[in-house]
Design a protein around this nucleic acid. Structure first.
Lengths: 398, 398
DNA sequence: TTAATAAGTCATCTTGACGGATTAATTATT
DNA sequence: AATAATTAATCCGTCAAGATGACTTATTAA
């Protein structure tokens, strides 16, 4: 249902608008914030004062010397808040302790032997105190946990690659119970797009873009009007299970020719295995192979066309400003795909362009964990994400 | 950029919330409006008074007699406002004069000989006085014109089927100049989804659904959180140009195997033509053929699989509550496709279902024109669409 | 008649944005 | 050195809108 508003809710919106203006446009004096937000000088000043009191922003030294009273630039206070972001995928759980400025204060990755949600939750929960300790942060400024894991959520018949029976909803619930802390959940594509949107240099100023996430599987995240598009159940963007090659490779979802069976690290691993090269660890692939390895080249030539088609689908359906391509797959693999997938097919994206249609994502391998770590901040400040903080915990965009 | 808010804007939001509560939940007394919106009794009462003064709602006779002061149910005043909706496609321009209740007070369709935007605009503009006259409405309550035409807009290299060089943006501008009236523009899929959302019995209460629009081409409209998703340039949902059959039929867009070359009236027409049956008029197809005609059956068997794949793509990317299938193609064609496309492929839509995954759209052939006619109302009242009323005129969702 | 009940309105309060005047801090000018 | 000019930020009063609780009104039940 539509929601009515009032002065108090308006203020929360405006507080977020001010916060974002400061975050996006760097240190700004109040007068400049007022101009970019359209709020009056006074309203701006009051909201800045409150953000200062909350410790989320701070005044910096005025740089330039000009006529007139010197401005007091206000910037995000990087250490005004901390969050933990977990990125859980097959065999591996990465964790970051991130501050409000998006800087990773501590990172850790450990192998996961179990695919049982309860056990994984216990494991992650056990890490939390040590993570906070090792990051050396002021724990009174700790906001909560964000969790990223492959989707879809709540669809028992479809599991992420190599994670049969896996469901992020169950893991979130278990992690909540094990830690007693709020846990916000989103899938890896949504977390990646969120991280890119907040911390990437190009994506920061975009309102509509798609993140193509290459990992064990292939997912996507859709950023639209400043929030990750989730659809009815938070599962939107499941590009990997769109059909790229009718009658093609069989997929765990029961269909044939899903894009993920052609374009994913899992697909490459299987291809290598069929050729007698067993390489189940993504890091071994990253370090021991390259795009010029004959088997990889062969796989790439089979992957290129389905990927080109998938990108065309994303463009025609979402009409994004650009598509950012990234993921925790080896960087050389992503770059080889970007190189080969050009020239792209014609699509509705052939209009009004200010950016390339396909761009390399700015952020590296921990994009997803950083995106997850962003969720508690959004749950606290962004009115569009406020529902994430509800006790029963909705999903992003759900 | 994010937009700050204030008391005045809040009020507009709340006015819309009240209006929608009345529209969706039928005649409601103020107290019930207050309960469904969450606004106080007083705020509700004030907003209802203003809507009454604007003539958009009216008080009805209280029905039930119970203890206590009898409620005065408030309902949409169907004749509180009027709009014109034009649906322009190859060879044909349909027009409706619609009232605020969504009732069509007058409809008209005429063949279009030209595909020149300036001429078409002159033609449409010339119709306006006669349309208003023949509808017999109070012209002081006329709000403006909504225009639907196939997309994409602003992409010279991609034209709608059989409309080379066509661009809705140019038509809108010409129609504005010819009439001096505000003209709101959206593509046919977006207009269809808008009409279904407002006037369909099932879709009225949905927040996320997709409309699959079968006409000369194949488009889709994505309703999300109460507005048609448009992406960066208002062109989102161009399902017809996603690749369904790699290396398949060649498409006017330069690619091969676009879904539209398999699933569209244009595709059927071409198929018939190749078999020696020339039938360029959709009405002749509708009246002279049926799903049991051998050539149609053959076409259907070729169309089913690409459609099944396209539906899977929509489900996996948008995670809708349901997909409504409709359009101005012959009803028997739509129904034959619905019948044949089942069983659908597995997708993320296999969760949490309250509705069938694929439904026949409620509205008939004039859905698009009615959706177009809705745009001026949205531009006036819905804060999410307010930009449609701007002088430079953005697109839906743009 | 009177009590009970429910819908709707009135008066008052609170919140928050806005606008103009004022103050503060600095450079430029005389 | 004094003063003017300039710019940033704040003070203070005003205004719009929603919330709140008491009050009024219209009706049925006893």
């Amino acid at each position: 249902m539509l929601r009515a508003t009032n002065a108090v809710k308006s203020k929360l919106v405006n507080q977020w608008v001010v916060f974002e203006a400061i975050r996006i446009h760097g240190p700004l004096p109040r007068i400049a914030i007022s101009e970019t937000t359209g709020l009056s000088k006074q309203a701006t000043s009051d909201l800045v004062d409150e953000l200062l009191a909350l410790g989320f922003v701070r005044e910096e030294k005025s740089g330039e010397r000009r006529v007139g009273k010197p401005p007091k630039p206000v910037a995000i206070h990087p250490d005004g808040a901390y969050t933990i972001g977990f990125h859980v995928d097959f065999g591996r759980a990465a964790a970051v302790v991130m501050n409000l400025g998006g800087e990773v204060r501590h990172r850790e990755a450990r192998p996961l032997s179990s695919v049982d949600a309860g056990r994984v939750a216990q494991d992650l929960a056990g890490q939390v105190p040590a993570l906070l300790e090792q990051a050396g942060i002021d724990t009174s400024r700790f906001l909560g946990i964000g969790l990223a894991t492959p989707g879809p959520f709540g669809v028992p018949s479809m599991s992420p690659p190599r994670l049969p029976g896996w469901d992020g909803l169950i893991l979130r619930q278990a992690l909540r119970e094990a830690t007693g802390l709020p846990v916000a959940l989103a899938n890896d594509g949504q977390c990646a797009v969120t991280a890119e949107w907040r911390f990437g240099t190009a994506a920061r100023k975009l309102r509509h873009f798609v993140y193509l996430y290459l990992g064990n599987g292939l997912g996507s995240g859709i950023m639209t009007n400043g929030s990750a598009f989730g659809g009815a159940n938070g599962n939107a963007g499941e590009l990997g299970h769109t059909i790229a090659v009718p009658g093609g490779h069989s997929c765990i979802c029961g269909k044939h020719g899903c894009l993920e069976t052609y374009v994913s690290v899992d697909s490459l691993t299987r291809y290598l295995g069929e050729c007698g090269v067993e390489m189940h660890d993504m890091h071994r692939i990253e370090n021991e192979l390259s795009a010029s390895h004959p088997l990889v080249t062969a796989w790439l030539s089979e992957a290129t066309e389905p990927l080109r088609s998938g990108i065309n689908t994303l463009e025609n359906l979402f009409d994004p400003q650009t598509i950012m391509f990234g993921g925790d797959a080896p960087a050389w693999l992503i770059e080889a795909l970007i190189e080969r997938v050009e020239p792209l097919y014609d699509s509705i994206s052939l209009t009004n362009r200010q950016l390339p249609r396909l761009m390399r994502a700015d952020l590296g391998a921990d994009a997803v964990a950083r995106g997850a770590a962003t969720l508690p901040v959004l749950a606290m400040l962004d009115p569009q994400y406020r529902h994430l903080g509800d006790s029963d915990g909705e999903l992003v965009g759900g």
